[in-house]
Design a protein around this nucleic acid. Structure first.
Length: 734
DNA sequence: TCATCTAACACTTTTGAACAGG
DNA sequence: ACCTGTTCAAAAGTGTTAGATG
């Protein structure tokens, strides 16, 4: 983690603010949970951390940073999930996100190095329950958890590196294990979170500075669950996640196959009487295959079935007539088991196969090429045990090379099942999902790309929105708010959102009914809605110019209390229980902090936005309090979660000072940051000894070890498969 | 009793080592 | 010796499900 010593405000600053925010709120039933963490820690905070941030030492390279843009590559997929209400499984051992967060960066200085971080922001202070096909608030959120950040394994890398490829955070894992020692991002189950990506300039992993840009994509909000609640989400996941391929209708782990296995288990020992029925099924399959390639595939599959069966039950079935020998073995309890246990052998299914070609081929290119295909007749051990049945069918095998099989089966069978949803990160946004309600995040851009552009050059705030990428491009905030259905989830305790349209921000972060002051200075009003839940919020410890809107805001030299006039009226819902309605998926650029100047005591850190740059908001129904209920948060109310400090299961691990692990920056760097760092190194890059950076990838190892992977490109270090994690709260991760 | 969580399970994909060939 | 491509087994990632937990 980056402690306050490294970046005083890091995680703590805004988080404390956020905590204060919670505390200051009109106390809903759940409120006591939040204040505790703050209150307990408040007293433990070093005095210098409570002091207001000093003026920024110097502005950074605005021109460069302000043009940084981030685009959500698989936005269309996210929108599909968003339209239903994205759920993310969290487990003790850690679970990856799906859809994965895949973005594309532009506007970086190709020569500068950047670190990319991913963290999760609690969207509100509510706990949810899935009831009646909708998510409803059932209470207050649980106590805050250690704030962890996933460091992209490529970090730090040059701007050229980041811009030359799509950046995927698929290795980031979510867990509900509060005692997690792996450094995974810890989340509460049944809570709402908003992923956020930070782009931070860094000379190396230990010396960050220069500027930060934070991006969020509202359609990536999700609810955490330990088991899927909404069947539609389950279907979507199965359809779009290659790892869940087996659960598709044509998969080997489909409901039908599982039922068959179950039945077989129950009927053991073998009940031969079942045979005719299964034969019929297979016959039906063959009749459904209409085109030649499909027939070819089915023949091959049958052949493989036969040969596999023959290999196992040669003595039993060899003398059987072709049809019988072809089908019977496959349905034979034991032979079927043998057949099905081999994933490399496609199994004909009454529902046909390959229902989701686009996803597999685009999102996971290796699927087609590496996915199990029919083993060639020459390599299949079963085929070597040739029988009369095999020789009859071998013709098709020999004439159907693997590529042909793969490709033809995809393209030829697919049309026969047009109703099957093709869900892929690259599937056009407008791909229809018949089984799902029409996405409510309309209009949806064709490619689903969303861009959040941190400011620069006084670009009009809304200009950062890609008109084609945003459902509400160039829409004044107020308009967005008034016209946007409640964010990502249903809001309908008694009724659906359709009957009860609840005005909300596209960002779904706020539903206050009164004017709000944006927590960050110079934030365009259009963006203030993103964090409108914070009222009259004064940023403590925000170094000047360190915080500005992600969109088109010149870096101020001195941070001021939120001056954004982002006030709007947000009619409170009268519903007693908010229910999220998957709906609006407008993209809202997050706050971007540029040119922050880390200092030992009072500068805002890149992570100072954590969790509360997007202040949690309660659901409209819960927001019975008025803005006045949330008095300005005193900058001094900064603390740490004392409950995590000592005595907690987290062991502190300090980062020792050691030389940079990276080769020197390219002398040709023309970056202002580079130059500024040379002129004011102490400011931009304080001594390491003052950086209690805690990398949680391998918490028990010495610090350099978890860093090695970050430099593997330069030093051939070993890369941890899961990337790196940062505990931003100053707590050890175990 | 109920909602929620956990671990085992079967399946699929990914990963990396081993190997062969140029 | 080096590079590239292939193969294969192990590891890891899925949703499902039954049972445990509070």
């Amino acid at each position: 983690m980056l402690s306050v010593e490294m970046y005083p405000s890091l995680a703590l600053g805004h988080q404390r603010v956020g905590d204060c925010y919670y505390r200051e709120r009109e106390p809903p039933a759940h409120m006591p949970l939040y204040p505790s963490s703050y209150d307990m820690a408040a007293g433990a905070m070093p005095s210098h951390l409570l002091a207001p941030p000093p003026a920024p030492s110097k502005p950074t390279c605005k021109g460069q940073q302000d043009s940084v843009k981030m685009e959500l590559e698989n936005g269309s997929l996210w929108k599909h999930f968003c339209s239903v209400g994205t759920e993310m499984i969290i487990t003790k051992k850690g679970r990856r996100m799906f859809p994965q967060l895949r973005v594309k960066l532009s506007g970086l200085n190709p020569a500068l190095r950047y670190i990319l971080l991913l963290d999760m922001v609690a969207v509100d202070t509510s706990r949810y329950r899935f009831q009646g096909d909708t998510w409803q608030v059932v209470g207050g959120a649980e106590a805050r958890l250690p704030d962890r950040v996933f460091i992209h394994p490529d970090s730090p890398a040059t701007g050229a590196h980041w811009q030359s490829r799509s950046i995927s955070f698929h290795r980031a894992k979510l867990t509900n294990n509060t005692l997690d020692t792996q450094g995974y991002i810890i989340l509460h189950s049944l809570h709402r979170y908003q992923p956020r990506v930070h782009v931070i300039e860094a000379r190396d992993v230990l010396r960050w500075g220069g500027g930060q840009h934070s991006f969020i994509f509202p359609e990536t909000q999700f609810l955490t669950v330990t088991a899927y609640q909404n069947n539609k989400i389950t279907e979507l996941k199965i359809q779009s996640n290659p790892f869940a391929k087996g659960f598709r209708e044509d998969g080997m782990n489909s409901k039908r196959q599982r039922d068959v296995r179950q039945k077989r288990k129950l009927n053991e020992p073998l009940d031969i009487g079942e045979l005719p029925l299964d034969i019929g099924n297979v016959t039906q399959i063959s009749l459904q295959l209409v085109d030649s390639s499909s027939i070819l595939q089915s023949l091959i599959a049958m052949e493989m079935s036969v040969t596999m069966s023959l290999s196992t039950y040669n003595g039993t079935y060899l003398a059987t007539p072709l049809e019988s020998s072809s089908f019977a073995p496959a349905t034979h309890p034991q032979s079927s088991s043998s057949y099905r246990s081999d994933p490399s052998i496609p199994q004909p299914s009454p529902t046909s196969t390959f229902n989701y070609p686009s996803m597999a081929t685009t999102d996971y290119p290796s699927i087609l090429s590496s996915s199990p295909t029919l083993p060639s007749s020459t390599t299949s051990p079963s085929l070597k045990q040739t029988s009369c049945t095999y020789t009859t069918l071998s013709i098709s095998t020999s004439s159907s090379p693997k590529p042909l099989l793969s490709s033809t089966s995809f393209h030829s069978i697919l049309p026969s099942n047009p109703q099957q949803g093709l869900l892929s990160p690259h599937t056009p946004t407008n791909t229809s999902f018949p089984s799902l309600p029409p996405p409510s995040c309309q209009p949806i851009q064709q490619n689903g790309a969303l861009q959040a552009v941190p400011n620069s050059n006084q670009t009009p705030p809304l200009s950062v929105f890609n008109p084609t990428a945003y459902p509400y491009p160039n829409l004044p905030l107020s308009n967005v708010i008034q016209t946007t259905p409640p964010s990502l989830f249903n809001l309908s305790s008694h009724s659906t959102s359709q009957s009860h349209p609840v005005p909300s921000l596209p960002y779904s972060l706020s539903s206050h009914s009164t004017p709000l002051s944006y927590p960050f200075p110079s934030l365009p009003s259009s963006l203030s809605s993103c964090s409108s839940s914070v009222q009259n919020w004064t940023l403590p410890n925000v170094s000047s110019g360190s915080v500005h809107s992600a969109v088109s805001i010149p870096i101020p030299t001195q941070i001021q209390a939120p001056s954004v006039a982002s006030s709007f009226t947000h009619p409170p819902s009268s519903l007693p229980n908010p229910v999220y309605q998957p709906s609006s998926c407008s993209a809202i650029p997050s706050v971007s902090v540029a040119s922050f100047q880390p200092s030992a005591s009072s500068h805002i850190s890149p992570f100072s936005l954590t969790n509360h740059s997007l202040p949690p908001t309660t659901c409209p129904q819960n927001q019975t309090t008025t803005p006045s209920s949330y008095p300005p948060i005193a900058p001094t109310e900064i603390g740490s979660f004392s409950q995590f400090n000592s005595g907690a299961p987290y062991l502190p691990e300090m980062v020792l000072h050691h030389p940079s692990l990276l080769p020197p920056l390219d002398p040709s760097l023309s970056s202002c940051v580079s130059s500024s760092s040379s002129t004011t190194p102490p400011t931009l890059y304080p001594p390491f000894s003052s950086y209690p950076l805690r990398l949680c990838q391998d918490p028990r190892s010495s610090f350099p070890i978890p860093l090695r992977h970050m430099y593997r490109q330069h030093q051939h270090g070993h890369s941890h498969p899961q990337g790196s994690y940062l505990d931003m709260s100053g707590r050890a991760v175990f």
